[in-house]
Amino acid sequence: MTYGSETWSLTMSLIRRLRVTQRAMERAMLGVSLRDRIRNVEIRGRTKVTDIAQRVAKLKWQWAGHIVRRKDGRWGPKVLKWQPRTGKRSVGRPPTRWTYDIKRVAGSRWIQAAQNRGTWNSLQKTYVQQWTSIG
């Protein structure tokens, strides 16, 4: 379910949909119906499965650090700094970009922060916690 999640732009609606799907899968694993009225906490205690929001956030954070630290000339780090030539945006609210939620935790100089693994790993807990506390 988390295949390729490192590249997703995390939004609250996406996390909500992932959690609903995960709960449905856990109920199916246990053979429990919604009509049984068993709380999600109880089901999570029985399955001992990690919360999907935690898993996705951790994978994205690790992937971001990995991409930024690359020095072999691949396109990954270059794409992070890319700006469109036209300079025009479409009408309406701009889409959520991949780096927005990383910048919220690590600051606008997150690329420099990712170069130091110790600093980057200490910020990971804060980043994962922000997505775990939602909903």
Rank of each mutant, 00 (worst) to 15 (best):
R19G: 02
V20C: 11
M25K: 08
M25H: 09
R27E: 09
R27Q: 04
A28F: 04
M29K: 15
M29A: 07
V32G: 01
S33R: 13
S33P: 01
D36F: 05
I38K: 04
R39A: 14
R39C: 03
V41R: 08
I43P: 03
I43H: 01
R44S: 10
G45N: 06
K48I: 00
V49S: 03
V49E: 07
T50L: 08
T50K: 13
Q54M: 14
R55W: 08
A57L: 03
A57V: 04
A57E: 01
L59A: 15
K60Y: 05
W61G: 05
W63I: 03
G65P: 02
H66Y: 08
H66R: 06
H66I: 02
V68I: 14
R70W: 05
R70P: 00
K71H: 04
D72R: 01
R74E: 03
R74A: 06
W75A: 06
G76Q: 13
P77L: 10
L80Y: 02
L80K: 04
L80E: 05
K81C: 11
K81L: 12
Q83N: 10
Q83M: 14
Q83C: 12
P84I: 01
R85T: 13
R85G: 12
T86I: 12
G87A: 14
R89M: 14
R89L: 07
R89F: 11
S90K: 09
V91S: 12
G92I: 09
P94E: 05
T96R: 09
R97L: 14
T99K: 07
T99P: 00
T99R: 07
T99I: 12
Y100S: 15
Y100W: 06
Y100H: 14
Y100T: 10
Y100G: 15
I102L: 15
I102H: 01
R104F: 15
V105Y: 05
A106G: 04
A106F: 04
W110C: 08
W110Y: 15
I111N: 02
Q112M: 09
A113W: 02
R117P: 00
R117E: 15
G118K: 11
G118N: 13
T119P: 02
L123A: 06
L123G: 07
Q124C: 11
Q124E: 15
K125V: 06
K125W: 13
Y127A: 03
